[in-house]
Design a protein around this nucleic acid. Structure first.
Length: 983
RNA sequence: GCGGAUGUGGUGAAAUUGGUAGACACGCUAGACUUAGGAUCUAGUGCCGAGAGGUGUGCGGGUUCGAGUCCCUCCAUCCGCACCA
């Protein structure tokens, strides 16, 4: 039998599908193991070789775990709601469901070809109504919950309503911004609308007017992490701030638990730090600074009522409160207009206008440029009673903390810079610290000039300051999080509809019996004329179910469906529950999650949030979804470039006129571009057309020829050589009139660069063509062989033949001239040693997810067995099991056809058992070093003691050469390992 | 600026606890074989050197009998965050 990979692979893929070989059992005596991949968005471009990298790794591990006797859950599905399908729909009018269906079919076909052991019966698609029924269901649960800070968990909203009915909200400890007090009686007398509005302040999913990132080009709102540098992540359109009524998720309630939960999961520090950073916890105090009412004369305030306005600040350094010498408000702070004195009105208005024109980006670029404006107002220091000038400055952000800071120039560099710039006095409150050159921001030292804090070490002073602030009612010790509540509405079509309808402007939930609320048909996938989301276009009759005055027109964001899919795989066909309690308890956490790190602050944070919520509400018994996670590195593409001459001003010799059209494209082989002169260029030009000449641009150096590199499709390039024949045949050159300057070997050379793989760079390598050429087993092994899974690495097919040849070499251990040559004779001691050495390495490396080194281990094993001419069944059978996770098709074939085992049983064969006895040797080859440099090797009995080894080595004539006849100063012998002599 | 990661041949990389640096593979050189196959086999391949030998894991220092590995300083590249109070 030849190694006919195409035929073999087709045969076994069919076998696995027909026999449902990889179906996970829901009831099993075996221990469970859950291996999950981040499911893909099925884009129109299909898979490139970077996509399956993680899938291959997880598949190898899943197959390995099956061999180790685990009941493995290894599912796959599609994150199939999303913008590209919608934009395609807008352009073509084709329903996004159709595009999505086609893309999924293509993905499935590509995935199937690689031989994954997915349990396809559990496939989920976030855009299918059977699935998003449960997305809607979770939304309902979150809407119907509030966060009780006393029990530190989410609880049913009914328990809160019961409290309101009994005693009002005075004693309610909840995560809420709502500060008004009401009694039980008030509550009962509120209208339905008023009650609904108040509950909205407590619900974990709530409607609120929020400043949103509005993207006019997309007609939708984006989450913070979907905006990159002021542009939309998808599409790169400008984004602006806009106030809109939106659904939000009170993720802030979980900030602390999202932080502490990180300690219980086995993820990389990089991802954990990104999440910590995103949550942005800072501990300190909020303090109120009263305004000086006489300066400016403030009262009476609006409504004629005497008010006592104050500025609330958040500080992480309450210990430095006596170092405050000014305050800074964000330009957008609501108090600015009220406190600004007539004298400064114009200047403040001008500053505010200037600040509002600056984009976030401009503010970033402008770090060195210190700006600000005095308001004319003063605050009163809560302890010293001193008057403190109040400024505004755009370095203070309205959206963080309270939008105001107490500036302590001696302790904060930004405040110091600001004070220096505007000549504000700097007070030093640190003992024996020089602050003339910059602020002192260390948290070590002693406080001075600070009344009751003087003489205290900084850390102690913090606690004392907070205690005093609380005692005097000036403020509270407080923890601040940068994390903001997540906006949960999108003004798009291709997303989950909300299970919500409105009656008299009050939102109500649709009853479970009517779920899912399916997406209605619309005439266009665009916002309406008056800016309503696309769903507003749907006729009432287009909704399969509707209620009240109208249905909710927003849809859910992309992360909704992906925040719980790992649960649905456990029980994908359950129509009554999101997941049954038994199945959730059995499958439990995802044991191994593999995916890219680009979801660090999006998907991975939201999934943890929903998991904790479902845990609080008793639906599942674990509160972290992913126990261990590995983030595979990106595979970069290798782009090829052809180089064309950058023409000067092309001129007709006859008429002297500039030639706008007919400019020939002159391609020059890359190895010639250094040598290609102006003379060569002009000659070539006149060869092409005697009327052509070129006048150099004035900006060019005399005689200089410039080249413009262009991406050339890598399918025309082999080893940097352009296949001109095919290229000319298949490429559309339009009317560019190409001319080729080839090198002395009549070849055309391209340059290359490593870049991200993308269609526009013509460097996309699809797995399909490689599977066709080399087989899936080769592709699988080669992707692993490239290097460590986590590392970013360039794709290059150069090495793939090495892996392919390995499989052919393996084949020759079993077959010769088409005949099976496996024998039942016992294996040599040497072959058994090779086998057991390999068993140990393969097992160890798999346990530490070192997939690349295992390919080498298997290669070494086959090389050695070939040298040993080993065809013994007892060795080869074990080897095939070791290979099975990596090259499953080849392993199945050899297992059943060459070794005569029942078909298909290799997936559940027992992983070989390592026997250390097999590696025991009579002799050890000791490397002998002199002064740490290895000079010679000596074969000595394993049983020798350190003393015996030393004596044996010293007795060797070669050792004497290195010792130059002298006795060594010191001899180190590590038995079984090494000898080192110090001369 | 802060945080994280990574720097080893011509190339992808290996070296798990401090113990033979460069396994394995690509590429390259020379040769063999041949039913010419993206075959197979043999030998070689870090750098300098004819050789003995010297030298070598981003730079510089340190600890150690011994450092790619541990410690300190610096440099480069990539990723994330950023006037965060």
């Amino acid at each position: 039998m030849e190694y006919n990979f195409n035929e073999i692979e087709r045969k076994w893929r069919k076998y696995w599908a027909d026999h449902k070989t990889f179906a996970a059992e829901d009831n099993s005596a075996k221990p469970k193991y859950y291996v999950l991949d981040m499911f893909p968005y099925p884009s129109g471009a299909g898979l490139h070789v970077g996509h399956p990298l993680g899938y291959i790794a997880s598949d190898i591990y899943a197959r390995y775990k099956r061999l180790r006797g685990y009941n493995v859950l290894h599912p796959m599905g599609y994150d199939s709601f999303g913008l590209p399908a919608e934009q395609y729909a807008i352009q073509t009018g084709q329903h996004p469901a159709i595009t999505t269906e086609q893309n999924i079919a293509r993905y499935r076909d590509q995935l199937d070809k690689i031989g994954f052991s997915f349990d396809w019966d559990r496939e989920v698609r976030t855009s299918s109504p059977e699935y998003y029924k449960w997305t809607q269901w979770i939304f309902k649960q979150i809407f119907n919950s509030w966060y009780n800070t006393q029990t530190d968990q989410a609880e049913p909203i009914d328990s809160l309503i019961a409290l309101f009915e009994q005693e009002g909200n005075a004693n309610v400890q909840a995560v809420s911004e709502f500060t008004n007090l009401f009694t039980a009686n008030d509550w009962k007398n509120y209208s339905e609308k008023e009650q609904s509005d108040i509950l909205m302040e407590y619900r974990l999913a709530y409607l609120a007017d929020s400043w949103v990132n509005w993207c006019p080009a997309l007609g939708t709102v984006l989450a913070n992490d979907e905006v990159i540098n002021g542009l939309s992540e998808r599409g790169g359109h400008p984004v602006e701030q806009k106030l809109m009524r939106q659904w939000s998720m009170r993720i802030k309630a979980y900030a602390e638990r999202l932080l502490t939960g990180l300690e219980t999961v086995d993820w990389t520090d990089a991802i954990k730090d990104m999440q910590r950073n995103w949550i942005g916890k800072s501990v300190g105090a909020s303090v109120k600074f009263k305004l000086d009412k006489n300066h400016p004369p403030l009262s009476p305030f609006k409504g004629g009522e005497e008010l006592d306005p104050s500025i609330e600040v958040f500080t992480t350094r309450p210990d430095t409160i006596f170092g405050v010498s000014f305050m800074v408000l964000a330009p957008e702070h609501p108090l600015v207009d009220e406190i600004t004195t007539a004298e400064y009105k114009d200047a403040i208005e001008a500053y505010k206008t200037a600040a509002s024109l600056k984009s976030e980006r401009d503010r970033q670029a402008d770090v060195k440029n210190i700006t600000g404006q005095f308001t004319g107002a003063y605050a009163i220091h809560p302890f010293s009673g001193e008057k403190i000038p109040v400024w505004i400055g755009d370095y203070v952000l309205a959206s963080y903390g309270t939008g105001a800071v107490m500036a302590v120039p001696c302790g904060d560099q930004r405040d110091w810079d600001f004070a220096k710039h505007f000549d504000i006095p700097i007070k030093n409150i640190f003992e024996n610290v020089d602050i003339s050159q910059g602020a002192y921001s260390e948290k070590e030292g002693t406080i001075a000039n600070s009344d009751f804090l003087s003489g205290l070490p900084i850390k102690k002073a913090m606690a004392v300051a907070i205690a005093k602030i609380e005692e005097l009612g000036l403020g509270l010790g407080k923890t601040n999080y940068r994390l903001r509540d997540a906006i949960f509405s999108r003004q798009r079509y291709w997303g989950e509809p909300f299970p919500v309808y409105y009656k008299n402007d009050i939102p109500y939930l649709v009853d479970d019996a009517h779920l899912p609320i399916e997406l209605p048909e619309v005439d266009k996938y665009l916002p309406t004329e008056d800016g309503e989301p696309p769903l507003a276009r749907a006729e009432k009759s287009a909704w399969k179910y509707s209620e009240g005055d109208r249905m909710e027109y927003n849809t859910m964001p992309g992360w909704a469906g992906s925040s719980f899919y790992f649960l649905r795989y456990m029980d994908p066909h359950n129509e009554n529950q999101i997941v049954s309690k038994e199945k959730a308890d059995y499958w439990n956490q995802v044991d191994l999650y593999i995916g890219g790190s680009e979801h660090a602050t999006g998907h991975l944070l939201y999934s943890r949030f929903w998991c904790k919520f479902l845990y609080d509400r008793g639906y599942i018994s674990f509160d972290e979804p992913f126990k261990k996670m590995i983030n595979q590195g990106m595979i970069l593409g290798r782009s090829s470039f052809e180089h064309r001459v950058h023409h000067g001003i092309l001129t007709s010799i006859k008429t002297g006129e500039q030639l706008k059209n007919n400019a020939p494209s002159i391609y020059v082989s890359y190895d010639l571009i250094e040598k290609f002169t102006e003379k060569d260029y002009l000659e070539l030009l006149s060869n092409i057309n005697p009327d052509f000449t070129s006048i150099p641009f004035p900006t060019f150096k005399k005689g200089e020829i410039k080249f413009v590199p262009h991406h050339v499709d890598i399918r025309f390039v082999d080893n940097d050589f352009l296949d001109l024949e095919t290229f000319q045949k298949e490429w559309n050159f339009g009317n560019t009139n190409p001319h080729w300057v080839k090198n002395s070997e009549n070849k055309f050379l391209c340059s290359s660069e490593i870049e991200k793989m993308s269609k526009s760079k013509f460097n996309v390598q699809t797995p399909d063509e490689l599977v066709e050429k080399f087989g899936a087993d080769t592709l699988r092994m080669y992707e692993m062989f490239l290097g460590p899974l986590e590392q970013t690495k360039p794709w290059d097919t150069k090495g793939i033949s090495g892996v392919h040849n390995f499989l052919r070499k393996l084949w020759r251990l079993f077959y010769e001239n088409g005949n099976v040559i496996v024998t039942n004779e016992p294996a040599s001691k040497e072959s058994l040693k090779t086998l057991h050495k390999t068993i140990k390495k393969v097992e160890d490396d798999l346990e530490r997810f070192s997939f690349n080194t295992n390919v080498s281990n298997l290669m070494i094993c086959v090389n050695e067995l070939t040298d040993q001419k080993c065809h013994s069944k007892e060795v080869l059978e074990q080897l095939v099991i070791l290979l099975a996770p990596y090259a499953p098709h080849a392993a199945e074939e050899l297992w059943s056809e060459a070794l005569g085992n029942p078909a298909g049983t290799i997936s559940t064969a027992a992983f070989p058992k390592f026997d250390p006895e097999m590696l025991v040797e009579a002799n050890v080859s000791y490397p002998v070093s002199f002064n740490g440099k290895m000079r010679m090797k000596v074969d000595l009995p394993t049983a020798f003691s350190a003393k015996e080894v030393e004596e044996a080595v010293l007795a060797m004539p070669e050792a004497q050469k290195w010792l130059e006849g002298k006795a060594p100063k010191k001899v180190i012998v590590v038995p079984g390992k090494i000898v080192n002599m110090v001369v």
